[in-house]
């Protein structure tokens, strides 16, 4: 295992080393010590490596991730896994605002709670939150799946496109054009697979599905107040 201590190694050196890993690298396991809330840890990775950050991270940890698995043993600051393309990011603690924002692919697992704007403008990423999520989550979410084992805050899925939202607990309020939808067998299968991959012990039948009413896609004068 490669071990890098951020108390003695500059952040750019760490990220350069991680970003330099090729597809067939034999240095597949990395451990980062003393993150102490630093920003932009393990960003822009593009190799099938496993990186464990021992502690809590600041802004934009694991942003733009491709292929890599990044695990944070503490909590993550704003914008964790922002614009992820593929791979897996796992946060053992909580995640701050806009976790997984604009993500195109891969899986983001948050074992604690996520705060506001989780999955904002998600474009294909799958996000599983074991706890609760804050307000304005999945705002303008375009595709992918957001799974919440706890409760969701205000204005869930406002101006939603085609992302699927699965919530087991309560939803404080739904955003504009977001509605509860029927849970069909194919949705149960998608959800079961995501729960398995996220290590979540939950029964898919306990969840409700929310999606777009598709009334904001085109201008309609009757909906002027909703724009």
């Amino acid at each position: 295992m490669q071990s890098i201590d951020l108390a003695t190694t500059p952040l750019r050196e760490l990220n350069s080393a991680l970003q330099a890993q090729a597809a067939l690298t034999n240095q597949t396991e990395w451990e980062i010590l003393n993150p102490k809330g630093a920003h932009a840890i393990a960003v822009g990775l593009d190799a099938p490596i496993e990186v464990t950050v021992k502690g809590s991270t600041g802004y934009y940890c694991a942003g733009m991730n491709k292929q890599a698995t990044v695990k944070v043993t503490g909590s993550a600051g704003p914008g964790v896994a922002e614009n992820m393309m593929s791979g897996t990011v796992i946060i053992d603690g909580d995640a701050s605002q806009y976790a997984g924002a604009t993500g195109h692919g891969g899986l983001l697992v948050i074992k604690g709670n996520a705060s506001s704007r989780c999955g904002i403008s998600m474009k294909g990423i799958d996000i599983v939150v074991h706890g609760n999520i804050g307000h304005m989550s999945a705002f303008m979410a375009q595709s992918g799946n957001l799974v919440v084992l706890g409760d969701a805050g205000d204005a869930l899925g406002d101006s939603l496109y085609e992302a699927r939202l699965f919530v087991r607990g309560s939803v404080k309020s739904l955003g504009s054009d977001c509605i509860e939808k029927e849970m069909r067998p194919e949705h149960v299968e998608i959800l079961r697979d995501l729960l398995d991959r996220a290590g979540a012990d939950a029964d898919p039948s306990e969840f409700k599905r929310y999606g777009s009413a598709r009334k904001l896609y085109n201008f309609h004068v009757d909906h002027a107040g909703a724009y």
Binding site: G37, S56, G58, G77, P78
Partner: peptide
């Protein structure tokens, strides 16, 4: 405020309550 886009982190132990705009401020 209700939108809460300005960051905030708090920590509490038996010895203190601490506030930081970011966790970095509390890390030591």
């Amino acid at each position: 405020d209700p939108i809460a886009c300005k960051p905030a982190v708090m920590a509490e132990t038996e010895d203190y309550v601490a506030f930081g705009s970011e966790y970095r401020a509390l890390a030591n």
